[in-house]
Each structure stands twice: as structure tokens, then as C-alpha cells.
Amino acid sequence: MDPTHQRRLLAGLVVATLALLGADLAGSGVAGAVRDAGGAVLGPVQRALSGAPRDEIAALEAQNVLLRATVADQQRRLAERERLAELVGGDPATGHRFVAARVVASDISPLGGRGLTLDVGTRDGVTADSTVVTAEGLAGRVVAVSPWTCDVQVLGSTGSVIGVRVGPAGTLATVSSPSSTDRESRPRGSLTLSFVQPGTPVVGDTVTTLGSVDERPYAAGIVVGTVTAVDPDRGQLTRTATVRPVVDPDAIDVVAVLVPQDRVAARPEVPAAGAASGPVVATEQGAAS
């Protein structure tokens, strides 16, 4: 290839790259299509590369994570059920289904934080915005899915903001990665907690997810971390604090992906305990008497 030709080719490729970079930053669908193509072509190769024969330890490890995730989920459901039973005596909670997965590739993102690839994809029922948990707690969420693999945005990546409840009172707050606009300096690997309503966090408070509609991208009640330091009160409207995540992003191996299940039945109306005729159940009561 002669030098002029080479220069022209280089210039063309640079322009194409810059165009794709701009398209991705602007949130265009073209970048998503390129991403899906990369996953569909190279994902199976990665699965084959890391799919060394599954030994017994790996299988047990996967089972362990699944069981622990289920136990944590059941405990949350029990607690919820108790609270609900106190309130109305009904049972609207539906169960979760988990898919065990292994990390097959990892990458330090150029924007900080970490990206992981798991060996499950749409063929295993995983969809974008599914919650990813480890035995300890929240690991992240699925951002891109291909037929055989999916990419996970790990907790604490730039731009990920999670709605959470803090402490026994369940005060509402958000958890995000430390940003350049932060007033306090935080130890590497920890997250910024900012309250959205007045309240004072206490060191040692457990931080759990608030949950979203249809459990996407985050299901409710999953442990995120603990408060390790509270920022000094500088007269700002709401308080901020440092949170240490329970999951070490460098050591994530076997995980469980939560597959959201749609609620099919309508939530039943239940008479309040002790109330002879509430306004909600007036007709039913009338028919019975």
C-alpha cells in the first residue's frame, strides 16, 4: 500500500470512529447494534475459552450462590409478609427466579469502574436490566444481552445511580460512584450515599435497594453495603455519607441473575383485621350479611 492511500484510509477510519463515539455518547441505537454484534460473534468463543470442564467445586460454588440468594430473598419475603400481615393479612408477593452464571471476561472501563461478561444470555431467559447478585449482596445490573452472554455494569461504575433505603428506619437515599463534584474524598472502591429526604445516617447502617417497577433494573431489599463514614454537616439540605459495598468488584466469580416474573393475578382486596366494614370491602360485606 502506498503512503497516500494509507493516509487516506487512516483518516477515513478515524472519522468513522469519531462518528461512532459521538453516536454512542448521544445515545444512538447504532452504537447498541455494534455492541450486540460484538457480543453475538465473540461471546461464544469466550464461553468456550473459559468453559473448562465444570469441576465439582465450581458446581457446588454455583449451587451455594443460588441457595444463598434464594435464602436472602425468602427472608426478605418473610419480613415483608409479616409487615403485610400486620397491615391487611394479604399476600401479594411473588417469588423470584435466579439463573446461576459465571464471569467469563472482565475489563476495566476507560471511564473507570469495571465491566463483566457472564456466560448466560437471552437463551437462558436473561433480559437487559436484570439484577445481578452474589452470595453477599448486589453485584450490578445487566446492560447488554446477546444470545449466549451478557454484559454487566458492576456496582460503582460511573453513571450508575441506585435508589436505596438506609438503616432500620428505611430512609430513602441514592448510592452512586464518587464523582468529580464530590466535596469529600472517599477511599477507593467505596460509594457515595446521598439522602433525598432529611435524615442522619449512622455508621454501621445497612444499605438495601429500594427496588423499581417490575424489579428492573434493581429488585427490592438486596443488601448493597454498610455506611462507614458520615460527611460533616456543612449546612447542606440533605446529608451525604460513604458506603462500603459488601461485594468486592475485583473478586466476583459466580453470580446469580434475577429473572423478573410478571405478576399475573390481580392483588386481592382483603378486609382490614378488626374492621367490620371498611370502605374497600363494603359491597362484599353487604352481600355476605
Binding site: 478515524v14 463515539l21 453516536a23 455494534v34 475489563d107 452472554t149
Partner: peptide, 30 residues
């Protein structure tokens, strides 16, 4: 010039191996 050309193309391969980088195109340029 040859180095830049090869670097750009190789950067795209790295970018497209899952986990696919974000924002797309930063690694090729670097």
C-alpha cells in the same frame, strides 16, 4: 502512519470483545 492504522484497527477488535467498551470508540483512538 502504518502504526496508527494498525493501532486503530486493533483497538476496534479490543473494543468489540465482550465486555464491549463504553463509550464505544475510545479504546481504538487511544
Amino acid at each position: 502512519v502504518h502504526g496508527a492504522l494498525v493501532g486503530l484497527v486493533a483497538g476496534w477488535v479490543v473494543e468489540l470483545v465482550p465486555p464491549v467498551g463504553s463509550p464505544l470508540g475510545l479504546t481504538p483512538l487511544v
